[in-house]
């Protein structure tokens, strides 16, 4: 459709139509309809594509560029090349942050997936409807609480002297646990709080996955003599493995981003024991105003997430079973 200037007044001429945008768009033919659909398609996509370019895709590239500069917002940025990266690999605080994130994600996601699957399977067993409903609701409730509120509430409950948790453990004869005041225990507390907050989500994923398994397969396995754990290991688990993969991937992406729990519960302490990579990034970029260095940590975190996700999908060919 070349838009040569329309000399002819006869827009409906059958020999050589000149371009008239109004007619081009409103023509009541199949061609006209297809054109309108395509145009409408781009129009409908415009806000989303534009928004994603400006606020997601563009910033990723921009982050990478910023990581090559030294910049404190007030003076013009200064090109430093890879200095921020070499600095990061020598910065024990940043390395500790990455290590803490790694430890946190390993345990938090592993337990989250296991517990989510367990709870989903329990809810699948035969029980009165009202009981199933009550259980399901109680497992889902924590999802409603913000990370900030969770950190506050569980932080109080895990208080060494006055916390409800240590009080009830005391009744069982267990001495006071320094939940938030000793490095190892502080990490345990953050992981427990994260599990409390997020297991309901994983559980729903698994309920979805489990309902897709036909009861015929399970009954057939029963008849063939596979019960209990054998049936779970050889039948249920392979059939639910696509959901397992999804839960693991989203779990790692979410877990590596955890911020509000350690930020409010422990402020990264005691020492640096619960300071995650995201917290180090936040402090560098927005507290110390080292935009370039903060971007460096953000970029490395992003690359780690990409690598882990790619690795999970790569390995999944070995163990994920699609029906």
């Amino acid at each position: 459709m070349s838009s040569t200037a329309s000399r002819s007044q006869h827009a409906t001429s059958h020999v050589r139509r000149s371009f008239n945008p109004y007619i081009w768009l409103t023509e009541n033919t199949l061609h006209g309809m297809a054109r309108r659909k395509a145009l409408l398609g781009y129009l409908f996509l415009a806000p989303t594509i534009l928004g994603i370019l400006v606020f997601t895709a563009g910033p990723v590239l921009f982050s990478f560029i910023l990581s090559l500069f030294r910049w404190n917002v007030f003076t013009p940025p200064q090109w430093v090349g890879a200095v921020n990266y070499t600095r990061m690999f020598a910065d024990s605080r940043a390395l500790t942050g990455f290590w803490n994130s790694f430890v946190f994600v390993t345990f938090a996601v592993g337990l989250q997936v296991a517990l989510g699957l367990l709870l989903a399977m329990i809810l699948q067993t035969r029980m009165p409807t009202w009981l199933r409903y009550t259980y399901r609701t109680s497992f889902l409730l924590p999802m409603l609480m913000s990370g900030a509120a969770t950190a506050i509430v569980l932080g109080y409950m895990l208080h060494r002297e006055f916390g409800a948790v240590n009080y009830y453990l005391g009744l069982l004869g267990i001495p006071r646990v320094p939940w938030l005041t000793e490095p190892g225990w502080a990490m345990v507390s953050i992981i427990i709080s994260y599990l409390w907050l997020s297991t309901g989500f994983t559980m729903i994923l698994f309920i979805g996955g489990l309902t897709n398994i036909s009861t015929e397969i399970l009954d057939a396995a029963d008849v063939d003599g596979a019960h209990g754990f054998t049936r779970f290991w050889h039948i249920t688990l392979p059939l639910v493995s696509p959901t397992l993969l999804f839960a693991a991937v989203t779990g790692v992406i979410g877990g590596l981003q955890v911020f509000d729990l350690p930020y409010i519960m422990t402020r990264g302490g005691p020492g640096d024991s619960t300071r995650t990579a995201v917290m180090v990034m936040y402090e560098s970029a927005f507290k110390n105003m080292e935009i370039g260095y903060g971007s460096t940590i953000a970029v490395v975190l992003f690359l780690i997430i990409l690598a882990v996700t790619a690795g999970q999908f790569g390995l999944s060919k070995r163990w994920v079973f699609y029906q």
């Binding site: 895709a57 910033p59 921009f62 982050s63 992406i253 590596l256 953000a298 992003f302 996700t309």
Partner: peptide
């Protein structure tokens, strides 16, 4: 796949 933290500084 892009985490919020990877974009927050430029945003």
């Amino acid at each position: 796949m892009i985490p919020l933290q990877a974009t927050i500084i430029p945003v």
